[in-house]
Design a protein around this nucleic acid. Structure first.
Length: 455
RNA sequence: GACCCGUUCGUCUAGCGGUUAGGACUCCGCCCUUUCACGGCGGCAACACGGGUUCGAGUCCCGUACGGGUCGCCA
């Protein structure tokens, strides 16, 4: 039987990193085993669900490259796949049919207008692929309830509500019905659902259906050790896109948060993840999100990007910074930028000066250079030395700076930083000599002369 | 509070009875670069605690502590 996994988000208006990671694991598992990845939108709570909030999630999945074989189509009501519809709000007739079956079997009853499913009084064991066997008796466990207000145990009805008085169906019921109807073979979901799973198993049994394989993955926590909320840094997928992360880098980092390839490899291409990912590599304990490491992973992916992909990925950020993407110097500039940027959003900052009409001087950097003795001579030597360069390319420029240094009895190193600040405006940035080449002789001399007035 | 899951450097992790407990991020040195980075090398830093089992426990068992989760007519 072919593997079928699903991601079943509730349309909240955000694609959260926890949800995205769950989607990733389901996607990888399905692809690894040549199966299908299904997207199903759990919008039974009509008041909270809008098309817009659903589309945010769909957009996020598409950005990550987690395309679904079956599910709703972006922006509209069309869907692909023959087991739809893939939005629970459109599946009410199916749920009605399944409820009829439970009624015929005498397993449900009415309670103050709601419909309850009577759970069996016996031990139910979840054979979880990550957590092992977990056993519980729902009748015993659910016979009391903790009241957070009074902090006391109060009597409770262990039978689960599956339909509201207003006719709306409840998560546990629709989740199981849809997994049956959609032929889901493997349920990979957050560990917060582990305690719900015995209820789901009871429903599978009531329908006489063999349940899917379950794998509950550990949760991602924030730096404080509590569940990531949308306010935490790195929590929302669309922010990764805006901040200049590469989708594959985000996938890479998410995979690492809870899964290990069991060797020392940390950087995985998307294709490698598909090859390597397996449930046996999922670890049991919750992890804390580390933004710094996520940045590092992104930087590594940036280095490995082909020149073409780098250009494509950088384009929106260059445009936002006013750098013309059709400038012939852009490819060379991007090569200079990639090795010192961790985010695409940092790329323009590294190379902007190449395309600028005027230099933006960093006051601290200028101060540091200008305060040195003999700086006027240094700048003048640079001007004179570079004026004499006829064939303007890096191989000639660099020795010319050395010669200029000799002319005033200085070492070349003593000229590099002043030259950098004079021409680029700051102590940091892209490799100096290639920048000089890209800038062109005329512009470099113009900047040096302009700077000499500051000295 | 009851039930469930977990616990190796600050963080992500390797380890599946015998290891100088390995790697990565971060941080700090040094080297390379006659600039900024990259890179290379090195350093700091961990088996929650207490009992067992065993010739021998990070690895197995039981407690305790701590963390997380669930206990809805949310998903």
């Amino acid at each position: 039987m072919s593997v079928r996994t699903r991601f079943a988000p509730s349309p909240t208006g955000f694609l959260h990193i926890g949800g995205a990671r769950t989607a990733l694991y389901n996607w990888l598992y399905a692809k690894r085993h040549g199966g299908q990845f299904i997207l199903r939108v759990e919008d039974t709570d009509a008041e909270r669900s809008t098309d817009d909030s659903m589309n945010v999630i769909l957009d996020g999945l598409k950005w990550l490259g987690l395309e679904w074989d079956e599910g709703p189509a972006l922006g509209g009501n069309e869907s692909r796949g023959d087991r739809g519809p893939y939005r629970q709000s459109k599946r009410v007739d199916i749920y009605d049919r399944y409820l009829d079956r439970l009624e015929e079997a005498g397993l449900v009853y009415e309670d103050e207008g709601a419909i309850r499913f009577e759970v069996p009084d016996k031990t139910i064991t979840v054979n979880d692929q990550v957590c092992g066997d977990v056993s519980v008796n729902l009748k015993e466990q659910g016979s009391t309830r903790f009241d957070p207000e009074t902090k006391q145990e109060v009597p409770a009805n262990p039978d689960i509500v599956i339909k509201r008085p207003n006719g709306g169906y409840i998560f546990h019921f629709v989740n199981v019905v849809d997994d049956i109807e959609m032929g889901i073979t493997h349920v990979i979901r957050g560990e917060d659902h582990l305690s719900n799973t015995p209820k789901h198993l009871a429903l599978f049994e009531a329908f006489g259906v063999e349940p899917p394989t379950f794998a509950h993955i550990p949760l991602n926590l924030n730096q404080n050790g509590s569940k990531m909320s949308k306010r935490d840094q790195g929590a929302l997928i669309h922010e990764y896109q805006e901040n200049g992360f590469l989708p594959d880098a985000v996938n890479n980092y998410m995979a690492l948060l809870g899964w290990s390839g069991k060797d020392d490899q940390e950087i995985f291409s998307f294709a490698e993840l598909q090859q390597r990912f397996d449930l046996s590599g999922i670890n049991k304990s919750n992890s804390k999100f580390d933004y710094d490491k996520c940045l590092w992973v992104n930087g590594e992916h940036l280095k490995q990007l082909s020149p073409e992909d780098l250009a494509t990925a950088s384009a929106p950020f260059l445009e936002k910074a006013g750098i013309p993407t059709d400038d012939a110097r852009v490819p060379a500039a991007l090569e200079l930028a990639r090795e010192r940027a961790q985010l695409l959003s940092e790329v323009p900052g590294v190379i902007a000066t190449i395309f600028a009409d005027t230099v933006e001087y960093d006051d601290a950097a200028v101060e540091k250079v200008v305060s040195r003795d003999g700086m006027a001579d240094v700048i003048q030597a640079l001007i004179t030395g570079l004026e004499g360069v006829s064939d303007w390319n890096a191989d000639v420029i660099k020795p010319a700076i050395g010669t200029a240094a000799e002319s005033i009895g200085a070492k070349m190193g003593a000229l590099m930083m002043p030259c950098r600040v004079a021409v680029m405006g700051a102590m940091g940035g892209a490799d100096l000599v290639p920048v000089l080449e890209l800038l062109g002789k005329e512009e470099v001399l113009k900047r040096l002369r302009g700077f000499s007035e500051k000295v």
